[in-house]
C-alpha cells in the first residue's frame, strides 16, 4: 500500500503490484494442488471421527500403564539392544566394502565405462525403491529369522544409499586431479587411491556415521519383522500388553539412541576440524 501511495502523484491510478508474477503464480498452483490432494486423501481413507474420539479416551489409560516399569528382563533387553546395534554396524561395514568400489564405477568422472556406470546407477535406483522391511522379509524367508537376516536385509538399502552418496562426493572432486594422475601414466587404481581417496575419505567417514545412525533406527523396527534384537522383544511385549517391560525397552532404546547421536556428533565435529 505504501508503494501505491508513493507512485500516485496527483492522479489516482490502479494499485501497482509489487510481486514477481511467475513466482506468485507458481505458489498459487502449489497451494491449490496441495488442497486438492488433501481433499482427495480425506475422502480416500474415510476418516472415522468416532474411532479417533474413542481412541483418545483410551490414551490416558495406555499412558498410565506405561508408567509402570519392570526390570525383570533388563539383561535380556540389554543384550537385545546390543544385537540391534551390532546388526546395524555389520550392515554398514559390509555395505561400505561393496559400495566403495561400486561408487567409483558409478561416478561420472571415474567410471571406466559410461554404460556400466549408467546400468549400475539404475540398479541402485531400483534397490532404493524397495522399502527396507521388504528386503528383510525376503532375507528372513530365505535364511530364516535372526540377526543374519537383518544384516543382509539392511545391506541392500544401505549399499545403495552409500553408492549414491559416495559417487556424488567423487563427482564433486571434478576432473583436475584425475587428469594429473592419468597424465603421469597412472592406472585407475592410482587415480582412485592416490588421487581421490585422500581428499574424500573424511567425507566418506562422515557419511558412514550418518548411515549407521539411520541403520540403528531401522534395525530396532526391523526386529519386529524378524531380524532379531530388541525390536523382537518390544514386538512381543506390545502383543501381550506387557507394559511394564515395554516401558523399560523403550527407555533402553531412547538412551542408546541419545548416546549414539551424542558420540556421532562428537566424531563429526572432530572430522570437521581435521579436514579444514
Amino acid at each position: 500500500m505504501a508503494v501505491s501511495q508513493h507512485s500516485v502523484k496527483g492522479s489516482r491510478r490502479e494499485k501497482i503490484s509489487i510481486g514477481h508474477k511467475r513466482t506468485q503464480r507458481q505458489q498459487r498452483i502449489f497451494f491449490f494442488s496441495v488442497l486438492i490432494l488433501f481433499i482427495f486423501s480425506i475422502v480416500m481413507i474415510d476418516i472415522d471421527g468416532s474411532a479417533i474420539a474413542k481412541g483418545m479416551e483410551r490414551l490416558p489409560v495406555i499412558l498410565a500403564s506405561l508408567t509402570q516399569i519392570s526390570f525383570e528382563h533388563f539383561l535380556e533387553m540389554l543384550a537385545g539392544m546390543v544385537t540391534t546395534v551390532v546388526i546395524a554396524f555389520l550392515a554398514v561395514l559390509f555395505s561400505f566394502v561393496i559400495s566403495f568400489f561400486l561408487a567409483f564405477l558409478v561416478a561420472n568422472n571415474t567410471t571406466p565405462n559410461r554404460y556400466l556406470g549408467l546400468g549400475l546407477r539404475y540398479a541402485v535406483m531400483i534397490i532404493r525403491s524397495v522399502p527396507t522391511p521388504i528386503w528383510v522379509l525376503i532375507a528372513v524367508a530365505s535364511i530364516g529369522f535372526g540377526p543374519m537376516a537383518g544384516i543382509i536385509g539392511l545391506m541392500f538399502p544401505t549399499s545403495s544409499f552409500l553408492i549414491k552418496a559416495f559417487s556424488a562426493q567423487i563427482e564433486e572432486e571434478g576432473t583436475e586431479v584425475i587428469e594429473a594422475i592419468r597424465s603421469v601414466g597412472g592406472t585407475w587404481i592410482h587415480v582412485v587411491f592416490k588421487g581421490l581417496l585422500p581428499t574424500i575419505l573424511t567425507g566418506m567417514i562422515a557419511t558412514l556415521g550418518v548411515r549407521f545412525e539411520i541403520d540403528v533406527h531401522e534395525s530396532v523396527v526391523l526386529g519386529m519383522v524378524g531380524a532379531g534384537g530388541i525390536g523382537y522383544l518390544l514386538q512381543s511385549y506390545i502383543q501381550y500388553y506387557d507394559f511394564a517391560n515395554l516401558t523399560l525397552g523403550i527407555l533402553i532404546v531412547f538412551v542408546t539412541m541419545f548416546l549414539l547421536e551424542l558420540s556421532l556428533n562428537r566424531i563429526r565435529a572432530l572430522l570437521r576440524t581435521q579436514s579444514s
Binding site: 594422475i181 603421469v184 601414466g185 592406472t187 592410482h190 587411491f193 592416490k194
Partner: peptide, 11 residues
C-alpha cells in the same frame, strides 16, 4: 613416478 609403477606398488 606412478607411471613407472604397478597398481599395487603405487597403491
Amino acid at each position: 613416478r606412478l607411471g613407472y609403477m604397478s597398481s599395487i606398488k603405487g597403491l
